[in-house]
Structure formats: structure tokens, C-alpha cells
Amino acid sequence: MKIPNVPNTSVKLMLFPFSLEGAARIWLEKEPPRSIETWDDLVSKFINKFFPPSKTTNLPKMKSTSFSQKYDETFYEAWDRFNDLLRGCPHHGFSELHQLDTFYNALNSNDQDSLNSAAGAISSDVAELKDLFGHVILDRKNQTPSSAPVKAVD
């Protein structure tokens, strides 16, 4: 929904109350008038109320270290579940690189290989096979008797 000359953050701020129910709705109704004037104010107050650092500081570290792709879970299902975990702890403080590394290492080997292929990388098994094949080719080449050059005689 785009309203001419009205910033998207203002539209979100106006519509946000309609997305709430239960404790979140009660919390917003109890906020003093004009205490929330911007989208950033709302986000900050909401996160501090429902996801305070005191409750979420250690949670992602515990869960992320035990995160792994389930046996029958697809790559996309695992990705969604991992992102849900991170969204549940907005104070996690993990860099994007750490998040990706944690997720990648939690995948099964087939999905890791698929990611490696998509990224243009090769898995360690494929790299070892390639090296082994290269050595076999070189050994065979070295074992083939080379013919000595023949000098033409007049």
C-alpha cells in the first residue's frame, strides 16, 4: 500500500496496532499518548518490552550451537527454522558471517555439496578425487615408454 507523499514508516506506524492481540495489544494501549511518534520508537519499545536483553542474551548461543538440519527437513525448511530462531532473539549480536557459518555447518552433507556447487566451490571429497585422478594420469604418462627420436640417415 503506497500513499502519495506519506512515508512507508508512517503507514506502518498507523497499521501496526491492527496486527496486535493479547498482551501486545494491552501493552500498546497502556503506552502514554504521544510516547511513540516514529516507527523506530515503536520498534525499540516493542523489542525492549517483549524481547529484553536479560531474557535473550544467552538464548541464541545455546540454541545455535545445537542447531542442526533435521533428518527429513529440506534445505529451505531448515533455513526458515534457523531464521525463526534468530528472529526470536533480536539481541543475538551474531555477525552475518557467523550466522551463515553456523547454518552451513548444521546442514547435511548433500545440502552442503549443493551449496558448494552453486557457489562454484568443490567439496573436499571431489577435490581429493580430482587430485587422485591427476596423480594417476601423471603416473601413467611417466610409465609410458617414450620413443627416442629417430634421426633420418641419408
Score class of each variant (00 low, 15 high):
112 Q>I: 05
150 V>E: 10
65 T>Q: 14
98 H>V: 10
101 D>I: 08
78 A>L: 08
64 S>K: 10
145 P>T: 06
88 G>R: 02
107 L>D: 00
62 M>C: 11
59 L>Q: 12
120 G>R: 00
106 A>L: 06
59 L>S: 10
39 W>A: 06
22 G>I: 10
69 Q>A: 02
16 F>L: 05
126 V>D: 05
78 A>Y: 10
138 L>P: 01
141 K>R: 08
22 G>R: 07
81 R>D: 04
21 E>N: 15
70 K>L: 14
20 L>M: 01
130 K>R: 11
90 P>Q: 00
67 F>T: 14
23 A>P: 08
152 A>S: 10
34 R>L: 12
59 L>P: 05
101 D>W: 06
47 I>P: 00
30 K>A: 09
27 W>K: 03
94 F>N: 01
44 S>M: 09
60 P>Q: 06
150 V>P: 01
7 P>N: 12
86 L>R: 05
119 A>F: 06
96 E>D: 15
44 S>A: 08
106 A>Y: 08
103 F>D: 01
46 F>D: 03
142 N>A: 11
43 V>P: 04
5 N>P: 00
27 W>G: 02
31 E>Q: 15
84 D>S: 12
61 K>Q: 14
111 D>L: 01
72 D>A: 10
83 N>T: 13
46 F>V: 06
6 V>G: 07
36 I>R: 01
69 Q>S: 02
15 L>P: 04
6 V>S: 05
44 S>D: 15
18 F>K: 13
118 A>I: 08
14 M>S: 15
103 F>I: 01
94 F>Q: 02
52 P>Q: 03
36 I>W: 00
102 T>D: 02
28 L>T: 02
146 S>T: 15
105 N>T: 07
103 F>R: 00
100 L>G: 13
71 Y>N: 13
13 L>F: 06
46 F>S: 07
84 D>K: 13
131 D>W: 08
148 A>E: 15
117 S>V: 06
88 G>K: 02
115 L>F: 08
66 S>D: 12
138 L>Y: 10
143 Q>K: 12
85 L>R: 04
48 N>R: 02
122 I>L: 07
138 L>G: 04
3 I>K: 11
100 L>P: 01
106 A>N: 05
83 N>R: 14
40 D>P: 03
1 M>Y: 09
71 Y>H: 14
136 V>P: 01
25 R>G: 05
53 P>A: 07
131 D>S: 13
131 D>L: 12
102 T>C: 10
153 V>C: 09
69 Q>Y: 02
20 L>F: 01
126 V>H: 03
77 E>M: 04
81 R>S: 03
10 S>Y: 12
57 T>L: 14
63 K>P: 11
152 A>F: 09
6 V>C: 12
34 R>N: 14
124 S>P: 05
83 N>G: 06
17 P>D: 05
8 N>Y: 14
11 V>K: 07
5 N>Y: 10
1 M>N: 07
40 D>I: 06
90 P>I: 00
